[in-house]
Every structure is written in structure tokens, then in C-alpha cells.
């Protein structure tokens, strides 16, 4: 087992408990690895860095929203690799490239390299957020972007605390759907 696996798994276990700092570090580290993976794959097919960045973000969203499907009894790397490969194949199918171009490699190679040269993705999340219903938008902006507590957000948005939580949960899912749709066009 590599040291990456041990460190990333420890971060994942903490993030499943709701530890924000671990969750952030985990997603940051995974995103640079995913970037190296997607850039490598797409460069071979003559695709650009912006498309790779879209895929990185789709995969990061998937890691976040599907983190309940990670089984702590298993290593983390194959789980991330399966998501990364699934999103790549889905992207290639959408853009009509044969899936035979995607070799099934060892899970370790997905996570072998970092790439921190960040490109802009092709969409703007602030613009997408304008399409969300008011309570969802207000709750996400307050808690996720401005870092307010749930209680403070409840006061600002004029809804109950459980309401803020529900609106964040639903709003982020809706946002992920919008992002997926945006990167698909």
C-alpha cells in the first residue's frame, strides 16, 4: 500500500465524520491527481485542458455527493479510480468517442501524479446559482461561500435552521445537475 493511499484514506475517514478541513484537503489533493489523469487521457485524443478541467470538477462533485458509497473496509484508491474512469467513459460516450480508447489500467496509476496547473472550466458557478430557487441560493451563499453558521444563515435567509440544511443539501444537488448539464453541451 502506498503512502498516498494511507494519507488519502485517513482524510476520507475524517471527512466522512464531517471534518471540513479534511474534506477540503482530500478534495484538493484528489483534484490535482484527477487533473493529471484526465489531461493525460484527453491529450492523447487531442482534447483541450478546459475539457479536462470540466471532468476534474465532475469527478470532484461525484466524490463529494457519492462519498456515502465508500466502504471504509476497502482501500480508497480503487474507489476514486472507478469514479474517475466512469466519468471519463461517460464523457467520451457523450462526445462520441469509442470506449475502446480507455485502457483498463491499474488503479495506482490514476493516483500516481499531481498536476496543479489549473485551467478554468467552461462554466461559471455564480451564474448557474442564479437559476436555483431563492432559499437554496441564499442558504448556499451564506453557509458555503460566506462561511456563516447555519444559525446565522437561517436569520439572513428568513427560514428555519433545518430549512437551511435541507436547502443546502437540495441546492448543491441541483447545482451539480446544472454543472453536469452545462459541461455536456
Amino acid at each position: 500500500m502506498t503512502t498516498h493511499e494511507i494519507e488519502l484514506k485517513a482524510l476520507m475517514l475524517a471527512s466522512l465524520e464531517g471534518d471540513a478541513a479534511s474534506h477540503r484537503t482530500l478534495l484538493k489533493r484528489l483534484s490535482s491527481r484527477l487533473r493529471a489523469y484526465y489531461k493525460g487521457k484527453l491529450a492523447r485524443m487531442g482534447r483541450g485542458a478546459a475539457e479536462a478541467e470540466d471532468l476534474v470538477q465532475e469527478a470532484v462533485l461525484a466524490v463529494h455527493f457519492k462519498r456515502h458509497t465508500y466502504d471504509p473496509a476497502e482501500p480508497l484508491t480503487p474507489w476514486v479510480h472507478a469514479i474517475a474512469r466512469y466519468k471519463l467513459i461517460d464523457f467520451l460516450r457523450r462526445t462520441r468517442t469509442s470506449r475502446t480508447d480507455v485502457p483498463i489500467e491499474e488503479a495506482d496509476t490514476t493516483m500516481a501524479h499531481d498536476d496543479n496547473v489549473v485551467a478554468e472550466s467552461t462554466y461559471d458557478v455564480r451564474r448557474l446559482m442564479q437559476r436555483l430557487p431563492k432559499n437554496m441560493r441564499c442558504s448556499i451563499e451564506a453557509v458555503k461561500l460566506d462561511g456563516l453558521s447555519v444559525a446565522e444563515a437561517a436569520v439572513r435567509c428568513g427560514i428555519s435552521e433545518p430549512g437551511v440544511k435541507v436547502n443546502i443539501h437540495r441546492g448543491l444537488k441541483a447545482l451539480a445537475t446544472l454543472i453536469a448539464r452545462e459541461t455536456r453541451t
Partner: peptide, 23 residues
């Protein structure tokens, strides 16, 4: 948007996850 912004968005106040949910 930068991926780091997305990461910040997702990792502010994350909810603890119910591990038994799938089963």
C-alpha cells in the same frame, strides 16, 4: 470557475455521512 472554488464550496460545513446508507 476554478476547481479550488468548487472544492471550497463543497467543503464548507460538510454533513457527516451515514455509512450504512447504501445497504
Amino acid at each position: 470557475m476554478k476547481t479550488d472554488d468548487l472544492v471550497d464550496l463543497l467543503s464548507t460545513n460538510p454533513e457527516p455521512v451515514d455509512r450504512g446508507l447504501v445497504v
